[in-house]
Design a protein around this nucleic acid. Structure first.
Lengths: 341, 341
DNA sequence: TAATCTAATGCGAACGTTCGCATAAAAAAT
DNA sequence: ATTTTTTATGCGAACGTTCGCATTAGATTA
């Protein structure tokens, strides 16, 4: 069975306390003993039992990450960054995928809490029925940080400026001469979607164009919707088609490529496409996708930094609300081109 | 501070033992007391402290999952399935991404162990230098299961029959009339790659074709390699080009689509492409990718089942080695077509 | 009515740590 | 030589559970 501190202690004829202290380099223990203990620990294959440590310190050095669906590239790329950032500071990450279910979202938090986590990171579904639940997460007694916007909610957030990112995208299309710019997305239930839509509207206004409801597709929350919706638009006569499409996320852009190809149109010559997220696959697509990059690494690092700060503060005065917004950047690749005359 | 069993005990003027037993429906506690305790627990917001429970039971109800890189769709889709399957049985999943580094692979296991996990699931990099390390994982004292093949290694494995999957793919291409079939992949260091390559060779043999080294690309381990390699092949005169390409994984297929497009060729009319894995994106590609499906859900469920069995056995006689192989299935979509005359 | 049995509950130790508060020995100061 | 200081170590409780072994009270039997 696993080696404990006591095994080392009796091996060396010292107390468990001494071993415990020696292992954490406590100055009270003489250097020789410290060395001796560490050597034995290594030789005997000692592994500290974090369960026991946690029980006394009531800290687990683990962070919970709740996401919509881990199999979606956006979330897994985020999770990877979060894990890396956490690991760097000695924290482990528990991941729970809510599968977009409000119920599982609650169950996940419940599980996290009894498992014992020091902090909670959430990318929530923003389901209406879980609204109250989100704001109550604060009462869990551990730091909670959202990757959601939740503008009007009194919670901690680290987010990207979706509005700004979308404006950048529309301006880019505008500068290429496009005016008939469509929007493909899904619903308005979550704040990032609202912001991207608002950015789209205002971006068009800047170009002196009024957004037409006809060219805003929001009906379904499915990556394949991009295909269906754009296919319908492209069925119209040439002068009634959009010349560029803004996709609310990169996955939708896939379907748009397909719709274009099936309509006999080329991207970007006949149709410019712009995405949002900058997933790894964007570079592999043909043509490589112009998109708005969400700085996932910085987002993850800011999140972990927030946690570390809160852990350090620990009752050190009232912790103030954090609302951090990172700037997205437009990554121009080859899916956008000047409007053909 | 969090509610403990003692809080409930003093609230109800019973002992902590009684509360503990009542909560797990121990028949020794009268029904009335059981109900009373449960009611109070719910009202007071009691959450069992799994740390404490673990300390005494030395079980954590957590499983570790070690993968190459969580941000790759294949691994994240697998992780999602594993998480779902584990959750169903009350187990949590700790994910650690080794980032394809042999060192981090070891560090991850170290971390898992001191954190305390009941079982370990591994998708290893198969780096030569970690060979010994893999076989020693057995000595950790917990069940260990690999998603790798490790044919000649004495470890537990749940895998897909990569050889068979590839044969199916080649047969499919053969039945469409293709004979000049190329292979794009990376190295031969890991067993699944060896198997796919062997399947390719034997599949060609069945068609009466000898595999030509010229049409086997293995130089780089990078999704963009599919693009580069196929682009080179397609630069040759028409009758010296492959008419179909087998991609060792779906991601490579992306680049192949691009190479084809840039060479002015259409998929599947001028070039058939077949992938491996069946990632979610396959359906979104244009054209939707014909591919060999790895049954991730079944793989994950088999893995969890294995764990549950081992937990239940618990010193119940010598546990026998498990080598489970699930059958992949060919998913025919629209990236393969009959050879043009 | 005393002895035995059953049902319901409680006591106290244990799991592997950490930490406050001794204690002991050696060194320094008086 | 005695007191004070310093240095190094140990004791025992605590964290929140679980579990073996009492203990108590009421019911049953002789």
């Amino acid at each position: 069975m696993p080696i404990t501190i006591k095994d080392i202690a009796s091996e060396l004829n010292v107390s468990a306390t001494t071993v415990s202290r020696a292992l954490k380099n406590d100055a009270r223990i003489s250097v020789e003993v410290r060395e001796k203990v560490k050597k034995s620990a290594a030789k005997m294959g000692y592994r500290p039992n974090l369960m026991a440590k946690s029980l006394v310190s009531s800290r687990t050095d683990a962070i919970g990450l709740l996401v919509d669906n881990l199999s979606w590239s956006f979330f897994s790329e985020l999770a990877e960054r979060v894990q890396n950032a956490a690991e760097k500071h000695g924290y482990s990450v528990f991941i729970y995928s809510s599968q977009k279910s409000a119920g599982l979202e609650k169950a996940g938090v419940e599980r996290f809490m009894s498992r014992g986590i020091d902090g909670l990171l959430v990318y929530a579904t923003e389901k209406e029925e879980n609204r109250a639940f989100y704001s109550e997460l604060d009462k869990l007694g551990i730091p909670v940080l959202f990757f959601n916007h939740f503008l009007r909610m009194d919670v901690n957030c680290v987010t990207t400026d979706d509005y700004d990112g979308t404006i950048q995208a529309i301006r880019h299309l505008g500068s290429l001469g496009h005016r008939r710019i469509a929007y493909v997305g899904s619903g308005e239930e979550s704040s990032f979607k609202q912001q991207r839509l608002a950015g789209y509207r205002d971006g068009l206004n800047e170009l002196g164009v009024e957004a037409s409801p006809h060219w805003i597709g929001l009906e379904e929350d499915d990556p394949a919707y991009g295909y269906r919706k754009v296919k319908a638009w492209l069925a119209a006569p040439a002068d009634e088609r959009p010349t560029a499409v803004f996709a609310q996320n990169d996955m939708l852009a896939f379907g748009i490529y397909r719709a274009a190809a099936e309509a006999g149109l080329r991207v970007p010559d006949d149709l410019s496409v712009i995405g949002f997220d900058d997933l790894d696959v964007c570079q592999l697509m043909h043509p490589p996708l112009t998109t708005v990059r969400i700085p996932l690494k910085q987002l993850a690092e800011a999140a972990i930094r927030f946690m570390l700060d809160r852990f350090a503060a620990e009752a050190g005065g009232e912790a103030v609300r954090l609302k951090t917004t990172l700037s997205p950047s437009l990554i121009i690749r080859q899916s956008t081109a000047p409007l053909k005359q």
